[in-house]
Design a protein around this nucleic acid. Sequence first.
DNA 1: GTGAAAGCGCTAACAC
DNA 2: GTGTTAGCGCTTTCAC
Lengths: 341, 341
Amino acid sequence: MVTLAEVARRAKVTGATVSNVLRNPQKVKPETVERVMAAIRELGYRPNLTARALAQGRTSTLALMLSNIANPFYPEFVLAAEREARKRGYFLLVCNTDDDPAITRAYLDQIAGTLAAGVIVMNTDLAERELVEVAGRGAAVVLCMWEHVQPTRALPCVTVDFAAAGALAAGHLSELGHRKFGALVGEGSGGPQTVRVAGFESGLAARGHAAKSLVAARTRDSIEGGYEAAMTLLRKHSALTALFATNDLMAIGAMQAAADLGKRVPDDLSVIGITDIQLSHQFRPALTTVRFPTAEIAARSITLALEMVEGTAPAQEMYAVRGPELVVRESTGPAPPRRRG
Amino acid sequence: MVTLAEVARRAKVTGATVSNVLRNPQKVKPETVERVMAAIRELGYRPNLTARALAQGRTSTLALMLSNIANPFYPEFVLAAEREARKRGYFLLVCNTDDDPAITRAYLDQIAGTLAAGVIVMNTDLAERELVEVAGRGAAVVLCMWEHVQPTRALPCVTVDFAAAGALAAGHLSELGHRKFGALVGEGSGGPQTVRVAGFESGLAARGHAAKSLVAARTRDSIEGGYEAAMTLLRKHSALTALFATNDLMAIGAMQAAADLGKRVPDDLSVIGITDIQLSHQFRPALTTVRFPTAEIAARSITLALEMVEGTAPAQEMYAVRGPELVVRESTGPAPPRRRG
DNA sequence: GTGAAAGCGCTAACAC
DNA sequence: GTGTTAGCGCTTTCAC
């Protein structure tokens, strides 16, 4: 491995100068820069980032803690996060926690403040208190997409307006003339997605729907979970004409359940989700959903972490990005004519 | 930040002993171990992995270079890779290259041998020669899933039998009585997936099908690509009763094309893919496909890289994992009765 | 069984 | 402008 010292020797300067050529070239005489660059080229020198990190007291690595990257939301997030990090000269460590606090803790213990200058923590089952402690160890900690976020929290948080997303879905369904609604409430990492449902309920209320026009079911936040919950709901409540899922995966499962029950989407049943993962427009019928600005959230989380790492930490505690927006596709339509009952 | 020196001071030993307690406890007197552990606990000491890496001359980080993590194959791969790495005390850097050689090169230049002890390179457009050079800089380089792999190559490679996968698909379709086949050949990272098609062709030939019973079309390896290519093929060749896609994404696109053309799958048209990504069993009709042992490939890549990093590099140059296997689901069925023509 | 000392490759004052 | 000098926090011989 070629070291800075060897470059220095060859260019007949000291290490300090080589270092300067690389980091503050304007401080070095042009001809020296030239000579050093030549030596670097000839020797094929590459700075050792580990050594640099140790000397600077700061690494160029960020960690992203998420529950399970196989959940289709995360790859889209990671893609955007990694691009933003790379753009700023940082690298991204991806850490799956499997929603296991022990794994989360082990990761945090090992890398926060040593291998990783900053950590972005997506929904997790860890107590916030523990994360505050991690932050105390010298790592920039930013929370991301925590649904049950308190404005008083000690850690900065990048988030979206989950309630508004639910309300948007309610508005859309209501406008289409639906009267009986089913809600599929996901239990994901970070607990049940109740804020979205609350938003949906208040959206319904705002449009004059009675509370009993809504029936809800809790389920796992997955295609399978959505399928099962929709099956149960649809069988039990034949008057339902619209299903709201707190996440796209469940909505997709719900559409499959509808198909298996011989209900056509959207003719007999409208289905709407939240997030707008890629899958949503790839499925048939294409899913109507409330889009989260995923890439923007990811990029914002990275920049926020870096601002903290690099000491230009902004004052605010919570960062909402562009709000959610309705994306109408094929899975929602006018409420079917009422059957006489 | 609590350092090893502070722990040493508190435990009234030297740094060397603290280090030994952490790494070779058997070399230290039990009561000393006890005392040191107590100090560590009281101080909340965590070893600085950056410093350790510099001192040891080896990091505990591996890098995974892939074209784009939003492609559904990769998250499944990354999940398994990260778990294996974590199990062995390593961390995983995820690097998107976007199939851009410049990005790939930049990543490699920066991290190979410094931040990352090893690099797993999935299909890439980089010349192998460049990778060999990277390996020369002291990083363990392992190739993974390269379809056009030569047995003489200089770098170890973890791969599957792509040709066998194609042949398996051919056998299945042939047994179902199909006579006219269409092939959707993907152009992904790493070039066109021609080995799979070659395998498909020879599988067909082995069962006595004439070469002209197959029509092929090149397309992007994506749902959209598969959709378009299938549209073209199905419109042009009305006698086709079976479609083979070199990847599941295209197969899914093909099923959508079939639906839009009013063809029922599998009654009018059978569709088979390769890989068995999660989506394949989630889609309706569920896709028949040839499964790659994705998690196993990922784990093997990691262990191979670590064997090299840790100096126990095995002799072989190429590592095939368990072979591909046929997974029959809903998208394939008996060839429809021949229309008179 | 424990300590002293050198050094991993780099950065950052500060001196010249 | 460039060099000198101390480290960064840890590991690792090698004495004792």
